[in-house]
Design a binder for these strands. Structure first.
Length: 517
RNA sequence: GGCUGGGUAGCUCAGCUGGUUAGAGCACGGCACUCAUAAUGCCGGGGUCGGCGGUUCAAGUCCGCCCCCAGCUACCA
């Protein structure tokens, strides 16, 4: 942990050659929960997401539909902004690589690298397919029986082509990168990814081609505008563009270095090798941490457009509700691992964890309160051991969840919260407030107060995961907005506070015949 | 091929530096309760901890070999 009061967290910028799918939704969701948690915990948070709009693919996709690249990017970028609303994400800004300030940042970074002697002109050579208009790595090609080399993916004939290109002296950075990983063991997570990156770098690094002349949709290289900057040099720079680079006196520069770049496991190399090398070469501090999460499969099958089994987050939210989907994605799979998306499992979580355990706990407690306590937070008398035991378990939760989220262990944070929910359900049965109603109303009130207070503590911590549902439960507990920050975690419910009539927050999901088939 | 991680109840997984009868959640069976969203609680069945061999008073937990799975092995992102 940095120990700073600021917290800067980023998603990758999403390539607008694609419509948003579960993978995009998942990455941003994880960031959103962290951003919300840190804000509630009093940190000065900056949460950034956005779109990557340059490159040959965009140029070609735009041409294919008869649009200028910018117009095409404008159009597709909107669907990513819509997802932000749909999923109730809370970014502080949505950055686009086509912004003027981003061109300035990229070119400034380039000039810094060039001045440091880490960029030099050379030739980029590789197996080029004229038909596919793209280069292939040697391993992606194969020499056929006729002696001609072809791309494995497309079967198109490839030829050895050389074009002028600028190179970044990455080969010179291997040792410094390894030393950096050594000094910063938290830089790459999870552990298995760290091993992969280190072994990759230990295997030796080649210089990196960082400009192209084969297309023009991108940031021109300073002093040589025939060249367009390599997409990753362009894309990664967004993280510092946002902070005002190259102006280190800019108001947002206080957020750099980023506390966390959240990425999918497919782009870990760009973030853990290229990016820190670029930054160190430019004299800018590398980010604190990169977390590479896993991928989802769909009911056991690999997700692919050609299989037509892409998971649409919008459809999920429309079917199951936003908060259950947010909960499921972060609870079902240990964060960092690949996970299998199963409707049955989602429904199981929704009905079991949310409706039965948590929602029903709130409902059974609040309805007794409503019926017996004149619509107010009940009076509390002396506490017995069972009472303090439950309250203490709920009270420890803030530290537990804070520690788990420092490691991005969302599933463990949620498991801990739900253990207290289970404790609370056991406590209700053991104390049986409905029976106390006849024998000892004062004790009944105390039991209800303890339960309401335990639910308050739990729900405060549920807020980052399910902001809307948690908000509605806190409403029903009469917790005012200004006491929903973790600074107010220890401010117990005040007896006598007026409460609105209780209302179910997590309805069970009942499968219709159609949904089941 | 090389490197890394993993193979523990029907399913998903915990099991740190080796130590009493191997755990949780879900699913399944029984019981209790009736405040609650047919919710909740209690009890229970079920595992030769991938295989073989070894170290040790003692091994999912250490060592060796083997089998199986996944990821990585660079410039579309």
């Amino acid at each position: 942990m940095s120990g700073r009061s600021t917290y800067y967290i980023t998603t990758p910028i999403y390539y607008v050659n694609d419509v948003p799918h579960i993978g995009h939704a998942y990455t941003t969701l994880a960031c959103d929960v962290l951003a919300r948690f840190m804000r509630l915990d009093g940190r000065d948070v900056h949460f950034l997401t956005g779109t990557d709009e340059h490159g040959q693919k965009i140029e070609k996709a735009a041409a294919a539909v008869g649009l200028a690249p910018q117009a095409f990017a404008d159009k597709v970028s909107v669907s990513f902004r819509d997802l932000v609303t749909k999923m109730n994400y809370s970014p502080d800004n949505f950055i686009r690589t086509t912004e003027k300030r981003h061109y300035a940042a990229c070119q400034a970074l380039w000039e810094k690298l060039a001045a440091a002697g880490d960029i030099y002109p050379g030739k980029y050579a590789g197996w080029y397919s004229v038909r596919d208009e793209t280069y292939f790595v040697e391993s992606e090609t194969e020499v056929g029986t006729d002696g001609k080399r072809r791309a494995l993916a497309t079967g198109a004939e490839v030829e050895w082509v050389e074009e002028p290109s600028y190179f970044f002296r990455l080969s010179a950075w291997a040792d410094r990168l390894l030393a950096f990983y050594e000094r910063n063991p938290r830089f790459i997570a999870p552990e298995s990814r760290r091993n992969e990156v280190i072994s990759f770098v230990k295997g030796g690094l080649q210089d990196l081609s960082v400009s192209r002349t084969s297309f023009s949709w991108g940031v021109p290289v300073p002093g040589d505008p025939r060249h367009i900057m390599y997409v990753w040099l362009d894309a990664l720079t967004n993280y510092i563009t946002e902070c005002g680079y190259p102006d280190t006196n800019a108001p947002l520069w206080k957020y750099w270095p980023a506390d966390l770049h959240m990425v999918g496991k497919d782009i870990i190399r760009f973030h853990c090798v290229f990016w820190p090398a670029f930054l160190m070469a430019a004299g800018v501090a590398p980010p604190e941490r990169v977390f590479a999460h896993g991928w989802w499969t769909n009911e056991g099958q690999k997700i692919s457009k050609s299989l037509g089994n892409v998971i649409d987050p919008v459809e999920l939210v429309d079917t199951y509700g936003l908060d259950p989907v947010r909960y499921f994605l972060l609870r079902e799979v240990p964060f960092g691992n690949d996970g299998d998306f199963q409707r049955r499992a989602l429904i199981g979580r929704l009905n079991g964890d949310l409706a039965n355990a948590y929602g029903n706990l709130c409902q059974r407690v609040l309805s007794i309160v409503a019926r017996n306590c004149a619509g107010q937070v009940p009076a509390r008398g002396a506490l017995i051991e069972a009472d303090t035991a439950l309250l203490e378990r709920a009270g420890k939760l803030l530290d537990v969840v804070r520690a788990e989220l420092a490691e991005q262990a969302f599933h463990r944070a949620l498991t801990s919260i739900w253990e207290v929910i289970a404790d609370a359900n056991r406590y209700v049965d053991a104390q049986a407030p409905w029976a106390l109603a006849k024998t000892d109303p004062a004790r009944r009130d105390t039991v209800l107060w303890v339960l309401a207070e335990a639910i308050r503590r739990v729900t405060l911590l549920v807020q980052p995961f399910m902001p809307d549902a948690a908000g509605r439960i806190l409403d029903q507990l009469g917790v005012p907005a200004e006491r929903r920050q973790f600074a107010a975690f220890d401010r117990a419910l005040e007896p006598g506070t007026a409460l609105p009539p209780p209302q179910g927050v997590f309805p069970r999901f009942v499968e219709t015949a159609k949904a089941a088939s």
